[in-house]
Design a protein around this nucleic acid. Structure first.
Lengths: 221, 221
DNA sequence: TTCGAATGATGACACTGTCAACTTCGAGAT
DNA sequence: ATCTCGAAGTTGACAGTGTCATCATTCGAA
């Protein structure tokens, strides 16, 4: 956010319409975070293609090349935004989990958890288009962390599936790769509805399709 | 330029390494298709980001702006490549279908068809990375046809699900949106393995994960 | 044969990521 | 309190992109 607004945090206007924070001191103080903030905002509306380094720098009120003191490249900046987006997704999913009221039956609870997570996944994608697309953006293979799937969204899904297993709903011989299947279903639905051919689907049908997809996964498990 | 060089269609080399077809006549004759060909080749290796208008024109041996006699914009060119990619995907799926030998049981046959289609979908994605990513590429909302999901890949999937229904495997009360669920599963798996966090998954596990995903869909249906 | 309309070519503009060289400033050693 | 040096920001440039306005060529019909 507006982290270190020391003295006069005035907001100016540049030709392009990009808001500029004029800083008083030559050094910014927390440029890295400020750039990620700006870039994240760009990503929120407009997706990964909209996060352009020079524009982010412009928003912060700093020269474009100043960014290179904090990021190795444009891809590096995007990677940072990516992390944030994944975190936002996970947070949103966790929130949905918390709203769940336990029934008596642990088998039903486990099922409900997986269902809620899947639903939250798709809902996040549909209401946070830019962030979701950035979260799963991939262009240059640079950086981007060793592509472990440790993003917490997967962990949540995996934990829910594990819950299914320990509740006895999911038999051991079908245990393997079930998280992946569940993940694939909700992720695929998100992508198809966001950028894919399903993006023309009306709102009403969307929810029905989501329900059916979750149902297929639950039943197929 | 040295376009006034000589006669007939020799193949030269430009500094960048881009092969150039020098044509003899001022007019190309079939520039639109030639450009789509070149662009498709760019897409095959490198994905949608690699299909750059100027480069395609360079390959064909034509000025960059000449493309604007045949395409409204860069996005328009990509849309053309997109169509081709979707067609290639469908063709690949149909080929897999043709290899299927009918058992006596129509219920088993129907199931096998859906399974084969799903497997073909993911296999195409993994072995034709660039084309697949281009097929589902989406940036500017320009053109790109009215986003009906009439791409034949979907139709094939839908037909297979319909086969399940008419074979009695899929009860009517679960009929709705089942194609979407199946599509979502295989598409999601493809995307996750291609660009997503699953791209680090070793080959062996990949096939297992695909099998499990298909199994979940079949069983959940 | 003539001539208008397609089709290509040139040159330019704005924009991007990125690099090299320069400037400013903050903090630690003296 | 001052000096100094490296970190942080700036300026200017370059190559590359999509795209437009304008000019040149050629094909096909009148």
């Amino acid at each position: 956010m507006d982290s270190t607004d020391k003295v006069d945090g005035q907001v100016g206007q540049v030709e392009g319409g990009a808001p500029v924070r004029r800083r008083d001191s030559y050094h910014h103080g927390d440029l890295r975070n400020a750039l990620i903030d700006a870039a994240t905002e760009l990503a929120r509306k407009g997706g990964p293609e909209a996060v352009v380094l020079r524009e982010a720098a412009r928003h912060v009120g700093v020269s474009a090349t100043a960014a290179y003191r904090h990021f190795a490249s444009h891809a590096d900046l995007i990677a940072a935004v990516k992390e944030r987006s994944l975190a936002a997704l996970a947070t949103s999913m966790r929130a949905e989990l918390a709203e769940l009221e336990p029934t008596g039956d642990p088998r039903v609870d486990a099922t409900n958890r997986l269902s809620a997570l899947g639903r939250a996944y798709v809902h996040f994608a549909l209401s946070n288009t830019g962030l979701f697309r950035t979260a799963f953006f991939h262009r240059e293979v640079i950086k981007d962390k060793p592509p472990q799937r440790t993003d917490t969204a997967y962990e949540l899904l995996a934990a829910a599936v594990e819950g299914l297993a320990s509740a006895g709903v999911l038999p051991p011989e079908r245990r393997a790769h079930t998280e992946t299947a569940a993940w694939a279903a909700v992720h695929g639905l998100s992508v198809l509805m966001l950028d894919g051919p399903l993006r023309a689907m009306p709102e009403s049908e969307r929810e029905a399709a989501l329900n059916r997809t979750v149902q297929v996964v639950i039943q197929g498990v």
